[in-house]
Design a protein around this nucleic acid. Structure first.
Length: 414
RNA sequence: GGAGAGGUGGCUGAGUGGUCGAAAGCGGCACCCUGCUAAGGUGUUAUCUAGGAAACUGGAUCGAGGGUUCGAAUCCCUCCCUCUCCGCCA
C-alpha cells in the first residue's frame, strides 16, 4: 500500500494514477478522513496523557471520580477513532501502486510489445492443438480430472510428466547458477500473508479458503506469497540483494473466467510453477526487474520457442505492481502469443504492509520487492508440445531438455 | 487428539494492580586507567509514532486482539506461537 503522507503530498499524482488503473477512490474524501482521524487521535492522546499523570500514584476519591468521567469520554472518542481508522484503511487499501514512468497508460489494448524474439515457425502440415496431441499421445486426461475434482482439473500422464520434470530441472539448475536460493515454502497461509503481499482485498475471490471455521487458511495462488512473507517483520542486511525461488503448485479459483480457455490445459485450478523473488534496496529494483526479465527470456531462448515481451498497461496491472513485464510464447495452434511468465516490480507496496526493512545510515527503510515466474509448467508444456510437434503427430524433445530424459521424441506407441 | 508449561528490551532473565518502558547480568557504545592486561573503572544503551531545525514534548508498545479497573506487563476472555509428556503419523 501507499504511504498516506505520500498521498497527501502528491494528491494529483495519486488521483491521476488511480484513474489510469480504473480505480475509483475519492482522494479528497480519503484525505478528509485522514484529517478527521488525526483530530480524534490528538484528542485521545491528550486525555490519555491526563489519565496517565493521575495514575502514577494512588489518587484521592475526588480524582477517582473525575478520572471515571474522563474514562467514559475517552472510551467514546476511542470508539470514534477506531471507526475512523477503519474507514481510512478501507479507502487506503484500495489504492494501487504508482506506475513507473514507462508504463503504458490505458487498458489491455494499450499493452506495449517491447520486443519479439524468434521466428514464428511455419508448419507444412496441419498443426494440432495441444489438447489433441495430449489425447492422441496419451499424455493428458481431462475427463478423469473432472470426475475426481471437477472442471479445470486434469491428470498429466506418461512422457508429459517426465517432460515437466525435465523442465523443472532445467529451470532449477539455471536459477541456482544465477545465485537464487531455493526455498520449500508453506502452501497454506494465513490471511495476513495474503493481505501483506497485496492479493487481499483485491483478488480475494481468486483464492481458495480452506476450512474456514476451524483453520481459516488460504491456498497460495503463487509462491510469491510465502516467498515474500518469508521476511515479514524483519530488518534485512541488504549489502547484497536477497534472491529466492520455490517450486510449488499454484491454486486459483479462476472465478471470472467461466467459458474462457476451456480447451486443454491452458487455464486450470492448479498448475505447478517455479517462482522467483528478490528483496533489494530501492535504488536497485529497476535493475533487478530487468535481471528477472532477462532470466525469463534466456529460458525461452534456450528452449527455442518464439516469444514476445510485453509491458503491461496501467489498467491491467495488479494493485501491488508498479510495472510488469509478461513473456508471451508463440502457440501455433492458436496462432497467437499467450502469457507464460510475468514479472513485477512492486517497489515498497508489499514491504510497507509486511514491514520488511533494511538499515541505511542508522535508519530503517522499506525494501523493494520483485517477483517473476521462473516457469509456469502447464503453459510451458503447451508451448513445447505445440512448437515441437512434427508431421507424424509426435513431439520432439527440445535439445536443452534431452540430457534430463531417456527419450528424444514422444510417440504414440509406448 | 489428550494432559501440562510458557511467550517481557539485541540476548539471558526479574517483575502478580499504581512511583514500571520495565531490576540484574551479558552484549553494544563513549570515556578513563594501563604492570590484575584476551584485564579493570565510570557513564551510556529498546522500538514505533505525532509535533519540532534541534533540544525536547506527547502517545503507543512486555506475542495479538478484546474485557475488568480511577489505574494493567501483572486479573479475565479469545486467538497466534513455542516447549514437555502421551497418542497418532510420512
Amino acid at each position: 500500500m501507499l504511504d498516506i503522507k505520500f498521498i497527501k503530498e502528491n494528491k494529483d499524482l495519486v488521483q491521476k494514477n488511480n484513474q489510469s488503473r480504473g480505480v475509483k477512490v475519492d482522494i479528497d474524501q480519503l484525505l478528509d478522513v485522514y484529517e478527521e482521524r488525526n483530530v480524534l487521535l490528538k484528542k485521545v492522546e491528550e486525555k490519555r496523557s491526563l489519565r496517565k499523570q493521575e495514575s502514577k500514584t494512588k489518587p484521592s476519591p475526588e480524582i477517582i471520580a473525575k478520572m471515571k468521567m474522563l474514562g467514559e469520554e475517552l472510551k467514546t472518542i476511542e470508539e470514534e477513532l477506531k471507526d475512523k481508522e477503519q474507514e481510512l484503511n478501507l479507502l487506503l487499501w484500495q489504492i494501487p501502486n504508482i506506475n513507473m514512468p514507462d508504463v503504458p497508460l490505458g487498458g489491455e489494448e494499450n499493452t506495449k510489445v517491447e520486443k519479439t524474439i524468434g521466428k514464428i515457425p511455419s508448419f507444412d502440415f496441419p498443426v494440432q492443438h495441444h489438447a489433441d496431441l495430449g489425447q492422441n499421445l496419451d499424455l493428458i486426461d481431462l475427463e478423469q480430472g473432472a470426475v475426481v475434482s471437477g472442471a479445470r482439473f486434469w491428470y498429466l500422464k506418461n512422457e508429459l510428466v517426465e517432460l515437466q520434470f525435465a523442465l523443472m530441472q532445467f529451470v532449477w539448475s539455471k536459477l541456482i547458477k544465477k545465485g537464487f536460493k531455493p526455498l520449500a515454502v508453506p502452501h497454506l497461509v494465513k490471511e495476513e500473508a495474503m493481505f501483506g503481499t497485496g492479493f487481499f482485498p483485491a483478488e480475494k475471490n481468486e483464492i481458495y479458503n480452506v476450512n474456514q471455521e476451524e483453520d481459516n487458511l488460504y491456498l497460495i495462488g503463487t509462491a510469491e506469497v510465502p516467498l515474500i512473507s518469508f521476511h515479514a517483520g524483519q530488518t534485512l542486511d541488504l549489502k547484497e540483494a536477497k534472491k529466492y525461488f520455490a517450486f510449488t503448485p499454484a491454486y486459483r479459483r479462476e472465478a471470472g473466467s467461466y467459458g474462457k480457455d476451456t480447451k486443454g490445459i491452458l487455464r486450470g485450478h492448479q498448475f505447478d510453477k517455479i517462482e522467483m523473488v528478490i528483496f533489494c534496496r530501492p535504488e536497485e529494483s529497476q535493475k533487478y526487474h530487468q535481471e528477472i526479465l532477462s532470466i525469463e527470456e534466456e529460458i525461452w531462448q534456450e528452449l527455442k520457442i518464439p516469444y514476445q515481451v510485453v509491458n503491461i498497461a496501467s489498467g491491467d496491472l495488479g494493485a501491488p505492481a508498479a510495472k510488469k513485464y509478461d513473456i508471451e510464447a508463440w502457440l501455433p495452434a492458436q496462432n497467437t502469443y499467450r502469457e507464460v511468465t510475468s514479472c513485477s516490480n512492486t517497489t515498497d507496496f508489499q514491504s510497507r504492509r509486511l514491514q520488511i526493512k533494511y538499515e541505511q545510515d542508522n535508519k530503517k527503510e522499506l525494501v523493494h520487492t520483485l517477483n517473476g515466474t521462473g516457469m509456469a509448467f502447464g503453459r510451458a508444456l503447451i508451448a513445447v508440445m505445440e512448437n515441437y510437434q512434427n508431421a507424424k503427430g509426435e513431439i520432439e524433445v527440445p535439445k536443452v531438455l534431452q540430457k534430463y530424459l531417456s527419450f528424444k521424441k514422444i510417440k504414440k506407441e509406448k
